[in-house]
């Protein structure tokens, strides 16, 4: 049946170099952590099957190079994205300050049809470091920024210990799915189901 067919959702992870983009992706997809990930050159992605309600989805998670200099490649990598995940390191102020740049750069390069309402999720990573003693960006500060950008869902994660990673990506999958209305045009029998999900999930994501 048409409504049961798999939907591919494309998720882009952005953020400064070394904030843990690759680690988050690998922790979520393979439940593994390594200290020896290499700096990402160009881009790569992993896929994971997820089920939301009765929908089987393929989440395609894109890991990109963090250095600003490689941003011009974004045009090719960002296109068709359903959700953008902005990652910063709670121990590095600069990586938080740069979230705005990453967000704007993404909107310019991906040029989504409705930039005002394009779904982002923000992750504050590396909460495990030094037992949280070295963190410089408070949860409050982060949430304020997220609220100012149209209530972006916010999670604090540790890719190393796996803390909150599953929950964050559940949310990511949900709001990515919401941003996939075009699919439903061809599947009229699923409209109701999808819009029902939309209501439920958006509240579930507000943290």
């Amino acid at each position: 049946m048409a409504s049961r067919r798999r939907i591919l959702l494309k998720v882009i992870i952005l953020g400064d170099s070394g904030v843990g983009k690759t680690s988050l992706m690998n922790q979520y997809v393979s439940r593994k952590f390594s200290n020896q990930y290499k700096a990402t050159i160009g881009a790569d992605f992993l896929t994971k099957e997820v089920q939301i309600e009765d929908r089987l989805l393929t989440l395609q998670i894109w890991d990109t190079a963090g250095q600003e200099r490689f941003q011009s490649l974004g045009v090719a990598f960002y296109r068709g994205a359903d959700c953008c995940v902005l990652v910063y390191d709670v121990n590095v102020m600069k990586s938080f300050d740069n979230l705005n740049n990453w967000r704007e750069e993404f909107l310019i390069q991906a040029s989504p049809s409705d930039p005002e309402n394009f779904p982002f999720v923000v992750l504050g990573n590396k909460t495990d470091i030094d037992g949280g003693n070295s963190r410089v960006v408070s949860e409050k500060k982060a949430k304020q920024w997220c609220a100012s950008k149209g209530n972006i869902p916010y999670f604090e994660t540790s890719a190393k210990e796996g803390t909150n990673v599953e929950a964050a990506f559940q949310c990511i999958a949900n709001i990515a799915l919401k941003n996939e209305p075009e699919e439903e045009i061809y599947l009229p029998d699923t409209i109701d189901v999808a819009s029902g999900n939309r209501q439920q999930r958006s509240s579930g994501c507000e943290c």
Binding site: S17, G18, K38, A39, V92
Partner: peptide
């Protein structure tokens, strides 16, 4: 900072 991050993963 960037170099420090990269050499430990090279």
């Amino acid at each position: 900072g960037l170099i420090d991050k990269d050499v430990v993963r090279t």
